[in-house]
Amino acid sequence: MSSIGTGYDLSVSTYSPDGRLFQVEYASKAVEAAGVAVGLRCSDGVVLGVERLLHSKLLVKGSNRRIQSVDDHIGMATAGLLADGKHLAERGRDEASNFRDTYAQPVTVQILSDRLSAYVQAYTCYGSVRPFGISTLVGGVDKTGSRLFCIEPSGVFYGYRATAVGKGRALARTELEKVLGKVDEAGEGSLTVRQGVLELARIIHLVHDDNKDKEFELELTWVCEESGNKHALVPADLLAEADAKGRAALEEGMEED
């Protein structure tokens, strides 16, 4: 890393001569080390998935979730520092409830992402703070349909049909492109959330590095008609099915190799 020792990486309020903010780039390193988080827009809703790496066998099952609810209809998955994710979700809930109080209608996913990104960006402007060590997937269904956004540590955010952040995101994105390619061929409406759940589980299993990483728990949530258009955990039976199928697909793939 050419920046080391040059003194331009000490504060987020100082650019390097070639116009970079090293602290923001280091924050992205924290994201790269985290288990993958994946989001996918389907014809009838949106699905979020996370590979939750277990750093100890002593952890209680299902604890320390990385996907959180921001409002009835919006969920948020983070990759990076879990505590930063909790803080940003809290801010998201405040923004969502403030929007409701002011406009008497639920916030759209885009507006919420916009406000959260502005908040994240503010942490790249002052010497007294550090940027968020997370990339955030914001997914939900609002009056404009199902939406998915990703907010980076820099505060920039983009809308996606599908995306992945964290460790193994490149492979995950390639897989998502294949999935969407098939959707484009088959035509609009060919990918439902139930299929989406299976795809995400498959991709997370595929991306998981068995040799390097410890065990992981599959975490899946969705917003769709089946969940009453609320952000909710994917039902236990479907989760189990997706997990099993994902594992099976991986083993099949290995045999082919």
Binding site: R65, Q68, S69, D71, D72, G75, S97, T221
Partner: peptide, 10 residues
């Protein structure tokens, strides 16, 4: 609403 949102995580 906040109670319900928080209940998803814990």
């Amino acid at each position: 609403r906040e109670e319900e949102a928080l209940s998803l995580s814990d």
